[in-house]
Design a protein around this nucleic acid. Structure first.
Length: 243
DNA sequence: AACAGTCCCAACCGCGAATGA
DNA sequence: CTCATTCGCGGTTGGGACTGT
């Protein structure tokens, strides 16, 4: 087994630290709160962060008078209390972006979330597990199988594109970003409509959304959209799979 | 109305990486 | 270089909400 000195040191530290913390907690009978957050706790956290900013979560927790772990505070803030969090159904466009980016990057939820303003990695992860994996289960195929990936690429995504185009007056610009290298590429005639649309939706780090811009300005792409289930019937999907 | 089964999401956990002393 | 602490990610789970019988 190859293990670096640093990794070894980290392991030792981790074990020692955990044991010490458990011991101290036992001795002092500190009751670290777990489970759902109360309104009071939320208010404490929000008001503390609005005054002092975020970061240094362990000390923040203590200073704010919360009997929570730093981790718990961080999670609550990032996934729920942040002012720019978006709630509600995942729109068609967002579904499309999730499918597209997941096909490129796999379960890199935080990376995918960076391209969906206001959505958290947790939300996307939950969405994938509850909706997409459910479909794979229904179709009796593995979510990572080529068969299922082909279904997504050749059936779901084009269908989403159709639906998006029919609900909004979407036009495509010839220039768009590639998320891999954040460089502007030019759509060619061989580019499929779904690929072209995907590239139009997200950008690199300094997100410039291309056609997404006009949609966010004038349209309602961020509003809740149809669920996957409304795009086709299960029979239709099965028929396609048997081809 | 009552119960069972399923779905969904907030929250937790473990781990590795990064950072600071 | 070592050790301590913090951060962030991805996987998992508990329990409330919802649905069907």
């Amino acid at each position: 087994m190859n293990i670096s000195r640093t990794e070894f040191a980290n392991c030792k530290t981790l074990i020692k630290h955990k044991e010490e913390v458990e011991e101290v907690e036992k001795k002092m009978e500190i009751e670290i709160r777990r489970g759902p957050w109360t309104v009071e706790e939320d208010m404490k956290l929000v008001s503390y962060i609005s005054l002092h900013g975020e970061g240094r979560w362990n000390s923040l927790s203590r200073s704010a008078g919360l009997n929570r772990t730093g981790k718990s505070c961080r999670l609550r803030w990032l996934n729920y209390l942040r002012p720019d969090i978006r709630r509600g159904d995942i729109s068609l466009q967002e579904q499309f972006i999730i499918l597209e980016l997941h096909s490129r990057w796999g379960n890199r939820w935080s990376k995918i979330a960076q391209h969906l303003p206001g959505r958290t990695d947790n939300e996307i992860k939950n969405y994938w597990r509850t909706r997409v994996q459910k479909h794979a289960k229904l179709l009796k195929c593995d979510v990572n199988s080529k068969q299922f990936k082909d279904t997504i690429k050749h059936l779901w995504m084009p269908r989403l594109v159709e639906r998006i185009a029919s609900t909004q007056n979407v036009t495509f610009t010839p220039n768009h970003y590639s998320p891999e290298n954040s460089s502007v590429t030019t759509a060619t005639s061989s580019t499929s409509s779904s690929e072209s649309m995907a590239s139009s939706f997200y950008g690199g780090d300094q997100v410039k959304y291309g056609t997404l811009d006009h949609m966010t300005n004038g349209g309602d792409w961020l509003n809740g959209g149809d669920a996957f289930e409304t795009l086709w019937s299960f029979d239709e999907l099965n028929k396609w799979l048997l081809q």
